[in-house]
Design a protein around this nucleic acid. Structure first.
Lengths: 205, 205, 205, 205
DNA sequence: TATGAATGAGAGTTCATTCAT
DNA sequence: CATGAATGAACTCTCATTCAT
């Protein structure tokens, strides 16, 4: 043990990384804190030095990535103008980019939300609701202003969001071109495609 | 204990029901076999009389509902004619109806697929792939015949499927009309709405 | 199940046979009553129809074979004359023959004696002690009469018995002649060999 | 719990000791890991901190004592000269001393060998075979050189080994002189007696 | 006779966590 | 900062046994 796998002081990051991997692979309840520590190349006690509990590990992971999503959406909308189509495109871009750049965390957030303990949960539910509001307001506004012609804004919104979110489930960064070459598409192209889909869903030509 | 909660001989169903509830609420790893037995009103050992393991419980649940989905799709396509739009509508209807009538099981299947052990997994992966093929063939055919004008059939397909599947995540059968009255919409209406969305996604007017 | 593996009425024997096999292979605590029933081709409840408990199965097995050993010794000594060497030869023969013809049961008896419950144990301890007395009396008598010249009759006796008993551990009925051809020797030859060894142990030329 | 039964850090030994006792008294399958931990004055989890499984506990116990036996035999033969009788005496001494000084372990090894899992078993079978070879070579050599006149070296060897091994089954260290005073004999005397018996068995006067 | 259904106790093992150093 | 030792609760699963039919 003369050469520790983990350089001094970088324990926290190593743990976060290990937890992310483990939660992604086996889920929250399927992951053991021992396994996480081992992946991080640290002792169990070192892990507890940095995080007070397994739940804390999960909450930190989800919180950080949810915050980032909200921030991305916020910025995207701030940069966009007033046109509903532009605003929809901005939100689609933010979502697609987030879902790909934070593929793992965002999947964990989606799957393990229910495992948040009440305290953490309430706090994070607020952020999630705020993001959801952004979408809802945008679509409703587009419909009100006649830019979107879809009859059921709620369903349109859910369909768009679902389609964008699903990307995280099948996208594979380095996928070689071939039969399913879409799987490894460059991000800007993906954004274009999903923007087009979103605009069709809200019936905005 | 003069009146047993569960009549003799009907243990298997009670267990299946309890497992479904528990897996849905807490996930596979978050569910304890003791809790499932208690919910079913049976002893732990009675559970093992009917199912050889917790994994078996999961696999049985997923298998049964996946089979049903595939069967529904198959029938829907058989009854549909040759027109791509009709066929798409048929598949959307089968999927939406399935996702609502088997809301719980289908959610479990989606979330806990990774917890299937290799043997079960391989077997079920086959069924899943077959269902996926139905969608892919349909969309590609529609594009080839000029009925669908979407440029990227793969993404269109994924978007449609994602939108339909997401229904299971927010639909609430008895939801009272009100602000979010969509949540408790009657199934046929929902089918119509998602058919329209699907047709827009594949750009078929 | 139209042709039951086990003919009607022969359940008891099938169970005994199955228990013997299982106890021999895995020991008493390592054997499960379910496995025994399955080997016997019977249901668990059928097993309980014939034997009141797992312990009963063990005790019956041990008792029957211990009784037989004692009977064989008794008869052998009755048929032998008065000469110590003849009597020793008779006891060796009885023991060797028993150890081979009841190889399995006698091994079970040796290994699982400690797992007899107090009631069964006391009863069987009596028989075991009686058999032991036969050997002790014989050797002491031979020494007293000057036929055996060994200085330590107790050790001689234990050595002879241990040597004979050990046969059950290595003897293999159908062993093909070859390098270790002794392993499948015909019983009479084995008796002769061990009689010779016994006589040498008690130093009787 | 102000005074823990077991001082910190000395858990491993306490567990080994407890396992030895329990396996000896009730056998491998008859021993519960809970009982072993309790005997050791430790919690169940502490036991798993030191040994990865119940099987590991058994294998460690058997391995250590089997190694010691082999080592003792090796040394004894190395110190002995070339004379077959001397060599036989050396091996008898090593075996008797081992069987008494490691009475418990050696009995466990004999009784629980079959409960070793394949991996452990294969490894240990090698050691056992090596020890067996020592005996076989010795006897065959003695016969070849005319020092031993027994007609059947294999049976002679087995008889000698069985006699020596059996000591562990009846020897009682502190046994008071009396009717069965042999039971508590001093070890050197026992060695002498069994050497004499062994020499008679191989017919070496 | 024989069965399938059910049970309570206990098996081996792993869990997240804490403590003393 | 970090460790190895220890814990109690909980886990999945198997046990011998009994009951209703």
């Amino acid at each position: 043990m003369s050469t520790p796998a983990v350089p001094r002081g970088s324990g926290r990051d190593a743990i976060t990384r290990a937890a992310r991997e483990s939660f992604a692979e086996r889920g929250y309840h399927g992951s053991s804190i021992r396994d996480i520590a081992a992946r991080a190349g640290l002792s169990l006690s070192a892990l507890y030095h940095w995080h007070s509990s397994k739940q804390d590990l999960l909450a930190a992971l989800i919180e950080e990535s949810t915050e980032e999503y909200f921030r991305r959406c916020d910025e995207a909308l701030r940069d966009a103008g007033d046109d509903p189509a532009d605003r929809l495109a901005a939100l689609v871009r933010a979502t697609v980019e987030y879902r790909i750049s934070r593929q793992v965390e965002s999947t964990i957030a989606a799957a393990e939300w229910r495992n948040l303990e009440p305290g953490n949960r309430e706090r994070l539910d607020g952020m999630r609701a705020a993001a959801s509001r952004l979408w809802a307001d945008l679509v409703e506004d587009g419909v009100a202003r006649g830019a979107f012609r879809c009859e059921h804004p709620g369903d349109a919104r859910r369909a768009v969001v679902a389609a964008c979110n699903a990307i995280a489930q099948w996208y594979e960064p380095g996928y070689e071109p071939g039969y399913e070459h879409d799987r490894g598409l460059a991000v800007p192209d993906l954004v274009d495609r999903y923007t087009a889909i979103a605009l069709r869903i809200v019936d905005c030509s």
